[in-house]
Amino acid sequence: MADEIRVAIASDQDIVLARQRGRTLAFELGFSSSDSTLVATAISELARNILTYARTGEIALKAIQSTNRQGIMVVASDEGPGIADVRQAVKDGFSTSGSLGLGLPGVRRLMDEFMIESELGHGTRVTVRKWKQ
């Protein structure tokens, strides 16, 4: 399987590129078109967060394998200002209107696994995984 795919995020064009790469990889791994769409949408949101809050960063995509299933891992990392209250940022209010904040709860719903590390002044790294059904 292909190694890690890295997409540098520095402009809105890069968001489109990153999610297209993600969709292609998911599709190659045999994800359903519906799941590929969920992955692509999550990547779009993660890349957008990078651009909005840190200006630059990177999206890394990787095929992963556990004992009995295949999946895709997306790591969104930046060296931006970091998030002061991580817990608040991922809190899910199920609000369907108004401000979307970082959109992290939504990304969490789109994917199977979600992990975030953030340090004020040093940056943020969000790792998400989705497994093939």
């Binding site: 078109s33 519906s34 769409t37 969920l38 949408t41 949101e45 199920f94 609000s95 369907t96 209107s97 979307l100 959109g103 709860p105 939504g106 990304v107 719903r109 789109l110």
Partner: peptide, 17 residues
């Protein structure tokens, strides 16, 4: 709007209200 796209949108809480 495609069915898959609609599905992803509501997961994100985007409903074009």
């Amino acid at each position: 709007i495609q069915p898959e796209v609609a599905f992803a949108m509501v997961q994100l809480g985007l409903t074009l209200e």
